[in-house]
């Protein structure tokens, strides 16, 4: 068991390392660097910038060094908790995305909770009543959920909310709380705003979850131990909940591992459409203006967050599946 945990942890560390390289590489991709676009921007507003000033800027950000050195510089700062300065906002990256990152976690977790709340009962139901009308409906809705791209779903919900109910369903806070510090009222306000992004983000994962659970459960329902349990005289409901569902949950728990990247990925686009105060919209603007430290930090943090989440879900799996626990 300890061996398993160590192996998983090692794997996560290696993945984090690779993600950091990828994030940095992405930032290096655009032709020209931030100083170019910064200068262009200044010049457009009528402020001339001299060569010397430009060089100065480049030196400050280490933009003249080779990739490896720049990466090394960046990582050393990151490991010290310094994510650099956003050139676009002229503020430390940590300040720019601190709250937003926390809200991204909140939104992703809300989506995950939503996913499970819906996927569990529907998945169980459609496996137990295979080929019933309800099963077909659930399967079809599941298909729709998988098929409709997140951002379109968000658009359609926004549209319906606005044109039918006259509501702006975007955002995570009402206007009066938006700029306030944290308070109980703000927290409650957040809770009332969470369902829409949770549903939009969670639907595809839910559809996936229903499918996985249904298939696992259909497999499990045919296993001899179900017959054994039935032959004891157990009632159908108790039987299904105690045995096949319990066994089918394990693979489902492991799907958190791949749902999380999926949800976090989706949250970026959905946040932009729903104008959520998460890192999504900031990532888009930072990419467009080539604000490398900001974009790099966001890609890196999203990756790290997901990897940690996946690691935690593996640990949960370890707790609930005695087979893994024993074998190691």
């Amino acid at each position: 068991m300890l061996g398993y945990i160590i192996r998983r942890a090692m794997f996560s560390l290696v993945t984090i390392f690779l993600v950091s390289i990828l994030s940095f590489a992405i930032i290096q991709l655009p032709p020209g660097d931030y100083v170019d676009s910064y200068i262009a921007q200044l010049q457009a507003t009528g402020t001339p910038v001299s060569e010397a000033e430009a060089e100065n800027l480049r030196a400050r950000y280490g933009l003249d060094e080779p990739f490896v050195v720049q990466y090394g510089l960046w990582m050393r700062q990151v490991l010290r908790g310094n994510l650099g300065t956003s050139m676009q906002w002229q503020r430390p990256v940590r300040e720019v995305i601190g709250d937003r990152l926390a809200l991204t976690v909140v939104v992703s977790l809300a989506a995950l909770v939503f996913t499970w709340m819906i996927a569990l009962p529907i998945g169980i139901f459609s496996a137990v009543r295979q080929y019933s009308i309800a099963d077909y409906i659930a399967t079809t809705i599941g298909f729709m959920g998988l098929a409709v791209p997140n951002f379109l779903f968000a658009l359609v919900i926004m549209y319906i909310g606005w044109s039918v109910f006259g509501l702006n369903v975007g955002g995570l806070f009402s206007a009066e709380y938006e700029l306030q510090g944290w308070s109980f009222g703000k927290f409650v306000n957040l809770l009332t705003h969470l369902p829409v992004p949770a549903i939009v983000l969670g639907t595809a994962a839910t559809a996936q979850g229903i499918r996985v659970l249904r298939n696992n459960l259909l497999d499990e329902l045919r296993k001899p131990y179900v017959v054994t349990a039935r032959a004891k005289g157990l009632s159908e409901t108790r039987l299904i909940l105690k045995y096949p569902v319990r066994v089918a949950l394990n693979p489902l728990a492991s799907t958190i591992g791949y749902m999380l990247p999926f949800i976090v990925s989706g949250s970026v686009i959905v946040s932009i459409v729903l104008s959520l105060p998460t890192v999504g919209p900031v990532l888009l603007t930072s990419l467009v203006s080539q604000d490398m430290f900001l974009a790099g930090a966001i890609v890196l943090l999203l990756g790290v967050m997901t990897i940690i989440g996946t690691f935690l879900s593996d640990m949960i799996l370890l707790l609930i599946d005695p087979r893994i626990r024993m074998e190691e």
């Binding site: 993945t15 993600v19 990247p261 989706g266 990419l287 890609v299």
Partner: peptide
């Protein structure tokens, strides 16, 4: 599979 890829593709 284990990282959110959309931000990466957006970067690309």
């Amino acid at each position: 599979y284990s990282i959110p890829t959309i931000p990466l593709w957006m970067g690309l």
